[in-house]
Design a protein around this nucleic acid. Sequence first.
DNA 1: AAACATTGTGCAATCGATTGTACGCTTTTT
DNA 2: AAAAAGCGTACAATCGATTGCACAATGTTT
Lengths: 349, 349
Amino acid sequence: MYAFCNFVIPMRKTHITIHDIARELNVSASTVSRALQDHPRISEPTREAVKRVAAKYNYQPNVVASSLRKGSSKTVGVIVPRINRNFFSKVIGGMEELLAASGYHLMICQTHEKLGNEVSAIQTLVNARVDAVMLSISMETFNYEHIRSLPERGIRLFFFDRAAGDIQTGSVVVDDRLGAYLSVLHLLEQGYRKIMHIAGADRINIYKKRKQGYLQAMHEAGIEVPSSWIMERNQVQEGGESAFSSSIKIKPEAFFCAGDFAALGVMQAARKAGLNVPRDLGITGFANEPFTAFIEPSLTTVDQRGAEMGSMVAGMFLKCEEEDTTSDTCEQKVLEPELIIRDSSVIHK
Amino acid sequence: MYAFCNFVIPMRKTHITIHDIARELNVSASTVSRALQDHPRISEPTREAVKRVAAKYNYQPNVVASSLRKGSSKTVGVIVPRINRNFFSKVIGGMEELLAASGYHLMICQTHEKLGNEVSAIQTLVNARVDAVMLSISMETFNYEHIRSLPERGIRLFFFDRAAGDIQTGSVVVDDRLGAYLSVLHLLEQGYRKIMHIAGADRINIYKKRKQGYLQAMHEAGIEVPSSWIMERNQVQEGGESAFSSSIKIKPEAFFCAGDFAALGVMQAARKAGLNVPRDLGITGFANEPFTAFIEPSLTTVDQRGAEMGSMVAGMFLKCEEEDTTSDTCEQKVLEPELIIRDSSVIHK
DNA sequence: AAACATTGTGCAATCGATTGTACGCTTTTT
DNA sequence: AAAAAGCGTACAATCGATTGCACAATGTTT
């Protein structure tokens, strides 16, 4: 057994612990622990000696042990539909910036819009004893039992962008209705009247809100919207293409799309059909995906201010930590989206 | 103090532990632990009783405690320059798929190409006692001390896409030289001769390889490449624009760009200058960012097979875990990139 | 000078799960 | 029938850091 150990030790070199430091200085481990935390009852010489030895061996505290004892892991779980959506990676960036500065790290999970993945991600994060979960619910999520289990277990919960309506907790969302309203208002100002809407699934709150904004703007402009002007499609390229082709006989003047990818689909289908965008057809999207700036013509869209959203959610959490309050006392904030006007909707005279 | 506790207890409801289960069944905690792990020495009735009670209370093992005892956290750290680059999010997706199936979770850190962030990310992951670190080094990383500390502490290390050349460990990279070679070969086949290269910083390995591939293809075609044909630029839009404008008097026939964003810059500048792409100027990029398929004309580029890369790295790690070997015994795999031919480089006759 | 306050440190319990060893009981072997 | 083997469970130590309490040594008050 000893001989075997000789092979194992060099490969799994053990980390330095406070006990190693304590032994070297002939003090107790508790003194080392306190010295490293600048506890006032530790004398200046001892504190310095401890820190010197710790630095010498590049001591790294074992956060696993510390988490276990303190019941806090200094880790925050983030659950997003997918990280490669520009908006979500912006949000994560915003969170990371604030949280890293306060010594927290992020554990990021993707649901790919599947409820099953969301449930298991929450389980994972509970097991890891994260201090909080930042969640943007998946499109399949209509049952909230798994989400409710978080506050029940003392884990703070915050929603961003997509909230589960009836759970009372801190959240930051963007005013989707307003974003849609501004976008459609802009199309109206450009002279487009027969504006159709490629909507997302109505059971998804954000899409419902976008539709409401569309209807409000049209209503205020005194335009009656027949139900055929609203087409529910998956917010992907094919959705836009299919919507365009089934709308041809209505001869729409513009499209307000609930997502950038659908808008892209419309644009490509329209150009293939020989239409000039924006002259023959105005198009606006939603989300400000990076490609919207690069395509020809560039796409008017709505920015959801992901980075700010991320840092606001992180800020809420840090405030809770500081004041030792639960997340259900936090506010529900609503950010104003920003309309980015580009070429796909502006008629040059 | 007691009164205060009354307020605190309902908010921080304690998690169920094996001791709670043990008490309810009048067995010891070790029996519960073994029963849950299907240890053969636990009798069938006991095992079932334990599992029933565990399910009743929705018991979730505390992985923090388990990690501390077992010295393994079932967590893998991933360090990437930025998660919103399509390639990296694909890699992460590929890793996640395999690792989640084996019960591992991911801790994702971004360096934003800064060495300082890389150092602190590694520190974070060491503290969290991750079982392995998957690393794609930042552009600023030329000192590898912080990276070497990982295997020294018994943490497995794997590189993907960008490896630190002199560290012996498992890695999966794409053959950048070959990708560049194929891309330039394709331009040559299309009849372009005066092909310029917008290179990345030469001290970055991937960019150096891409330049080598370019030179090899040109050389084999018998074309002498004056140094003015190679322009080193940041691989962003502005880099491409600036390269284009300073190349005008050379009258290039095509550009092979080391990145998609630089290619985009070239394309936009060229069109602004009244050139037709691909007729007057062929353009190819590198990375297969999603926007490359949407722009007009669509951009020929090289796909780095991120998802496969991610799952290969994850597979290497799982194999190490299974066989209990260190990561320095693993192979250095090289993936063949795929040339995606689109409109920006194909001259229709 | 006795009583008290302050300072610096160590002891030991704790967080929750894991695991080597021991022990009592039953079954099998000789 | 005695010895050996197998089974099922409990005990206690362990992972590393934290923290309430105890206690000795020193300083301050009356």
